[in-house]
Computed example of a mutant assay.
Amino acid sequence: MPLHFTEGQRVTVPTGVSLFPKELPTPPRSWVERVYNITYWEKANKGGHFAAMENPKLFADHLNHFFHSLSI
């Protein structure tokens, strides 16, 4: 079931996105930002659906950068 948002509806929680080249296609950032509070967006140079197992250091680096991007 695809996500459906009504006009003006937003997810306000800070959201991080890591894009891996062997993963399913992702909509453009401008589309995602319409409903999500994107605070981190990074494209990886390798990896796929199981990125945490395929390249754990890269995945951990993305997580680390996302959490450091939050102003708490």
Results as ranks from 00 to 15, higher is better:
W31K: 15
P25T: 01
W41I: 02
I38Q: 01
P14N: 02
N37L: 03
R34Y: 00
L19M: 07
F59K: 00
T6S: 11
S69P: 05
G48H: 02
A52V: 07
H62K: 08
N55L: 09
K46Q: 11
T6N: 13
H49T: 11
T15P: 03
G8I: 08
V32P: 00
L3C: 09
Y40R: 08
Q9D: 09
L70A: 08
E54M: 06
I72L: 12
L3Y: 12
H68P: 00
V32E: 00
G48W: 01
L24A: 15
L58T: 13
G16W: 10
W41L: 03
H49W: 07
P28D: 12
D61V: 05
G8E: 06
P56H: 06
R29T: 01
F59T: 13
G16C: 06
T15A: 03
N64W: 03
K43G: 06
S30D: 12
N64D: 10
R10P: 01
S69H: 07
P25N: 03
T12W: 07
F66C: 05
P27S: 08
K57W: 07
W31Y: 11
I38G: 00
A60S: 15
G16R: 08
Q9C: 08
G8T: 10
I38S: 02
K43I: 01
F5K: 10
H4K: 14
Y36F: 12
L58F: 03
W31Q: 15
P21R: 06
V17T: 05
K43Q: 10
E42C: 11
P25M: 02
A51I: 08
K57G: 04
H68M: 13
V11T: 08
N45I: 10
A51Q: 05
K22A: 11
E7Y: 08
L70M: 11
P2N: 10
F5Y: 14
L58H: 02
G48C: 04
F59R: 01
H49G: 09
H4G: 06
N64H: 13
T6E: 11
F50S: 11
P28V: 05
Y40M: 03
F66Q: 03
Y36R: 05
P2H: 09
F66H: 10
L24M: 12
E54R: 07
L70K: 12
P2L: 07
G8M: 05
H65R: 15
I72Q: 07
K22E: 15
T15H: 04
I72H: 09
F50V: 06
V13S: 12
S30P: 00
Q9R: 12
V17Y: 13
N55W: 11
W31A: 14
T26P: 00
G8F: 05
E33R: 13
S18R: 00
A51E: 02
F5E: 05
F50E: 04
K46S: 13
P2R: 13
E54W: 04
P21S: 04
F20S: 00
P56T: 05
W41D: 12
T15Y: 10
R10L: 08
G47C: 01
K43W: 04
G48R: 01
V35P: 00
E54V: 04
G47Y: 01
E33K: 15
V32G: 01
E33G: 07
V17M: 11
E33A: 13
F5S: 05
G47A: 02
T26Y: 12
T6Q: 14
Q9K: 15
G16L: 05
S69N: 10
T39I: 06
G48M: 02
P28R: 14
V32F: 08
L19C: 08
H4L: 10
G8N: 14
N64S: 10
G8W: 06
I72C: 04
E42P: 00
